[in-house]
Each structure stands twice: as structure tokens, then as C-alpha cells.
Write a protein that binds this DNA or RNA. Structure first.
Lengths: 342, 342
DNA sequence: CTGAAAGCGCTAACAA
DNA sequence: TTGTTAGCGCTTTCAG
């Protein structure tokens, strides 16, 4: 079985030297049009494809970016990854994907695996902003980093794409208060990451501003390991003074709320108002359709790729933080608080 | 900025030759325990990570597998990709991800991009089994291929993971017929791929066997470009003799059916019975919960990775085709056909 | 505009 | 058990 043709084979076929083929392959340097044509012809007829591993040895550039994500089956992550991949591919870059299953140890390991493969940079979601091992690994990291929606205590500033979670959260709390709700709960995953922290803080602040007692604006942290997402929602709804509105962060928790309210026979929105965060993909198939806080995942992924490409091409450039908005999409899952609750 | 330490640096630090370090790094060859310890110590203190690009030049092995997928935002694809990535990572392999947006031209290009990066093999879903360019690219491909759920006319047999779509489809048609349905529609994406073909065929056959006239067992192919998935469902339901049961292949089309039936005021399952295929992720949040044909995506991804790893380690091995089952999960979205339809 | 020589980091083959 | 030599495919430098 013959091996793939190399640059040398092309050179021989075209009757030129290796370096000339290299110049044609890279579009670099000046090559006589006739020569170029001859070389290109040889490349085509041999089916030549450059060997990036070999090129990487000289240039230290693999044309490959690492993408580290906690969980690909989570729609937002997948959408961001796909958008980034697309942008990178358009620019001639490949994407090495690593999924960490929300495990910081795995994240540190994946980082090493990516470095070993000589990625030119890494775009990443981390699943714990305060994990010391992970932070050490990150600080040791030599190639450019684009951090997605996290606040990381790194020495050097890095490029990052972050989202404004507070504005939409405040808006949504005010909306619920206007509808008469006085007992509201926020369900979030138990993760030390920016979106959860910012949402929780904004939730509490907005509730306080609206004159809701601290004990009536509950933030429930749900362990990522809790298989049945409906358990915390059930606990909440079966308590002595159940919330009349629940905001659920992510598909898993929204599903939990829907299942819990269904099993308890609470009607939506008559008995319970529901709002989902980052759950737009399932909002329309629910009955009633779910009011959501949404973000443009496509934009996040593209921007992350763009930041990475910019850093790779223009070395100097000051680190950049891009802030993207969240939006509230009103649908029919919220209504006036039930009379009995007021 | 100092460069990453190389094997040579480690050798110097440990006072041994390059090759000894290499042997320690690969666990290969016999090395004296003391020497090994000294080398490992040097590696650790320097923070040495091997350069896989350099290794690849000698061995022609990058420890990286390509994964080509039409659309990552589609839950089944993401789940399979993640499962494969996990298995590969456990075995020390990286995964280069390429997404084709259902475009065969892109798929051929992505294949070249993967080859250029010297992947040791490629696991792939193609989006058109009959695209000549893609087939040519595939035939030219030198490294191992694991084909996911496609019937490809390739010269050489390749490893593949395929699913049985027919059995579950027959089961589901019989179930609907038993419930009294005599006009049934199947909504599928307009794609020349095994799952769609096998499902359509099984659907027609099962309907015929159940004594349903050909004109009453409709297969509607929906272009992947049709943004509003509800349009074909609306057309169907507003026709003169609308189906009393619809089977929808994939989230997009299931969503279309739900939106259409909602906007027409058809109750589920009283007026319309609905079954989803590969839609288990949204089945429970719907009201009523949706009866689904499901598959174990995790198993598909793991198996694909295993087949690839096996092929990489044991050269000879005859190509293997693993067939995985589909299952029907009954829920409450199907009921007796409405009286008026009989 | 084109080429010759050297070397990137690593390992296969052989030698000691 | 350890080391030496050579070279993978490519690009950088310097000469022509």
C-alpha cells in the first residue's frame, strides 16, 4: 500500500525543488505563474495533501484549535461548539473537541491532551471557576485562550466572550412581581460559574428591590448529579408555602419543573408560572409555550472563534472582553399569581 | 518566552540520552527502574509534555480520530459524538470534530482537512449516501473508516454501526392500526440516508400488511431547508382527508406537528395521535407526553469508538457491522382514531 | 524567481 | 540496559 504523496513527490513530478512546491502550497513567496501552474497540476494529479504535522514541526503551528466543553448534549454548548467549528473551518482551522463531563480534573487532563497535540489555542467553558488544579493548569498554558462566560482569576488577561445575565433576570423578576407573584424560586445547577452566580445575585437583588422578603425569593442549587431533575421542584412545590413562580436554569431543571407540576396537578400558568433560561429549544413544544431568557449561541460561538483567530494573526492586540446580551421572550407560561397566594 | 521543554531537555536534565527518555515516555523498551525514576522526575520538574506532531512524523500516528457529523445541534448527533469522544479520550486519543451542515461538498472538504491533519481514522455520518463526489473522496481515503448508520457503496468493506429502524416502525404502525387509525402519515427529512429509507420502506410495508390503502399511508419528505417545520404538517392536516396519526422523524418535524396541531386546535390524542422518532429528549415536556421510537445514542458512540480502536490496534480483523435495536416507548400521545374518521 | 542545506522533536534500527 | 545514527515532511535562511 503506497503512502500518501509528499511534497517531494510533487517536486519530482513537476521538475522543481521542494521549496518551490512549498511556496505554491502556501501561496507565499514569488513563484513564476508558469511554474505555479505546473506545480498545481502535479499536486492535483498526485492527489497531494500537505502534512500538517510536518509543517507544525517547523512552524509550531498546527492550524488546530482546542474546544473544551462540559457537556455536548446540552443544547447551548453544542450550538456554540458548532458555530465556532464553522468559523474556524472557514479560516482553515480544525477543531479538537474535548468534553469534560463537568469534571475539573478531566478538564485539566484534557488541557494537557490538547497541548500535547500542539493546538494553536484553546476555547473553553470550564465547569468550576475556583478549582485550584484547573487554574494552575490554565496559568501554565502557553498558547492563547478564549474563555467563555467565566470569571477566572488568571494572572494574564485573556480574551473572553461573556454574557449579561443580570439584566434579563431583573426584567423577569419585575415581570413576575407585576403579575402579583410574591413567592418566587430560582432553580440553578450547583456550579461555581459566572452565569449561575450572576443570575442568583441578580435574582436576589431584584426581588429585594421589589419588596419581596428574602425568605420568599428562594435560590435552590441542584446538584448536577441529581438524576431526576423533578425532585427539587417537587420538594419546593410540596412545601408549606410553595412559590407561585419558578425560574429554571437549563433544560434539565425546566423539565423537572414541568414534570413536578404535572404530577401534582398544578396547572400552568393558573397555579404556577414558569420561566426557562437557555431553554428555547424546548419552549415551543410545551403546553403552554414557555417564557424564556434566551441568548444567541451562534453569535457566542462565532465571536469566540473570531477572537481566537484575531489573537493568532495579530500577536500584540490587547485582550478583549466581548459582552453579549440576553433577551426575554414572553410566551404563555406566566400568568397572574393565584388569588390564594396573596 | 521560553519554549516548551523537549525530550532533549529532559534527557539533559536527567543525564541520559534522548532515546531513553523516549522509552520512558512511551513505556516501551526496557529501562532500569532507577533510570526511569530519574527521567520521570526530570519530566515532572520541567513540565514536559510530548509533542505528538513530532512523534507523528516518525510513526505516522497522531493519536487523533476525526469525527464528521452533519449537525451537532441535533441531539442524537451530539450524544453520539460525546460518547465517542469519551471512549477515545479514555484510550488516549483526541477527536477532531467537523460539522458539515448536511452539505456533501463540505463533507468531502472536511475529509480532506482531516487527512491533512493526519488523523488515524475517521468516524462519520454522511448526509447523502449517493453523492458521487463524497463517495470518491471516501474511496480515496487511506485510513480506517467507521461508518454510522449508512449504506455506502464502497469497494472495501468498512466497519459500521447501524441501527434497526424497521422493526420499531412496523411495531408502531401496527399499534396505530390497532387503535383504529386508517390514515397515517410519516414525516421524514428529505435525505438519502439509511434511516430515512429504511423507515419509509418499513412504514409502507407495514401499512400495506395492515390493509391500509397506499394512498392512506403517506410519506412526506420535508426539505432540510424548510425553516418552519410546521408547514408540511399544516398542509397535511388541512387537506381534505387528513391523517389521524402522524409519525415525525426528529425534533424539528415533531415540533412542526405539535405547532400545527395546536394552531389548528386539534387535540392530542383525541383528534390526532402523534409518535416521535429520536425525540426522546423533548418527549416528557410535551403535553401529553409523546410516544417515541428511541435508540441508545450513548451505545452507538461507544461502539463506534470501540470499532475504530479495534481496527487501529489489531490490523487484520475482518470488517464488522454491528446492528443496534430501536425501541418503542409508549406514552400518552396516541389514542383511538376519532369516530368521524372511520 | 528558484534552489541547497539545515533542522524542528521524535523514534526505528542497529550497535554497544 | 543504554546510546548512536539517521530521517520522517516540511519550512527557514541564505545564496544564487
Amino acid at each position: 500500500m503506497q503512502n500518501r504523496p509528499t511534497l517531494k513527490d510533487v517536486a519530482k513530478a513537476a521538475g522543481v525543488s521542494n521549496i518551490t512546491v512549498s511556496r505554491v502550497a502556501n501561496g507565499s513567496g514569488l513563484v513564476h505563474p508558469d511554474t505555479r501552474l505546473r506545480v498545481e497540476e502535479a499536486m492535483r494529479s498526485l492527489g497531494y495533501l500537505p502534512n500538517l504535522a510536518a509543517r507544525a514541526m517547523r512552524t509550531n503551528l498546527t492550524g488546530t484549535i482546542g474546544f473544551l466543553v462540559p457537556d455536548l448534549t446540552n443544547y447551548p454548548n453544542a450550538a456554540v461548539a458548532q458555530a465556532a467549528e464553522r468559523r474556524l473551518a472557514e479560516a482553515g482551522f480544525g477543531m479538537l473537541l474535548a468534553s469534560s463531563a463537568l469534571n475539573p480534573v478531566r478538564e485539566a487532563k484534557a488541557l494537557a491532551a490538547l497541548q500535547t497535540r500542539q493546538v494553536d489555542g484553546v476555547v473553553l467553558y470550564v465547569s468550576d471557576e475556583a478549582d485550584p488544579e484547573l487554574l494552575t493548569a490554565l496559568r501554565r498554558f502557553k498558547t492563547p485562550l478564549v474563555v467563555l462566560d467565566r470569571t477566572l482569576p488568571l494572572n494574564a488577561e485573556v480574551d473572553s466572550v461573556i454574557c449579561d445575565h443580570a439584566t434579563a433576570m431583573r426584567e423577569v423578576v419585575r415581570y413576575l412581581v407585576q403579575l402579583g407573584h410574591r413567592r418566587i424560586a430560582l432553580l440553578v445547577p450547583e456550579l461555581r460559574i459566572r452565569p449561575v452566580i450572576e443570575r442568583s445575585t441578580a435574582f436576589r437583588t431584584a426581588a429585594a428591590e421589589a419588596g419581596i422578603a428574602e425568605s420568599c425569593a428562594t435560590v435552590v442549587q441542584v446538584s448536577a448529579a441529581t438524576a431526576a431533575g423533578s425532585v427539587p421542584a417537587l420538594t419546593l412545590l410540596e412545601g408549606p408555602t410553595p412559590p407561585t413562580a419558578i425560574i429554571a436554569d437549563g433544560n434539565r431543571l425546566l423539565r423537572g419543573v414541568i414534570l413536578a407540576s404535572r404530577s401534582l396537578g398544578r396547572a400552568m400558568p393558573a397555579d404556577l408560572s414558569v420561566i426557562g433560561i437557555d431553554t428555547d429549544d424546548m419552549a415551543l413544544v410545551c403546553t403552554p409555550e414557555i417564557t424564556c431568557i434566551v441568548r444567541d449561541f451562534n453569535e457566542i460561538g462565532q465571536l469566540a472563534a473570531d477572537l481566537m483567530l484575531r489573537r493568532l494573526t495579530t500577536q500584540a492586540a490587547a485582550p478583549q472582553q466581548v459582552i453579549l446580551p440576553s433577551q426575554v421572550v414572553l410566551r404563555s407560561s406566566c400568568g397572574p399569581a393565584p388569588r390564594s397566594s396573596r
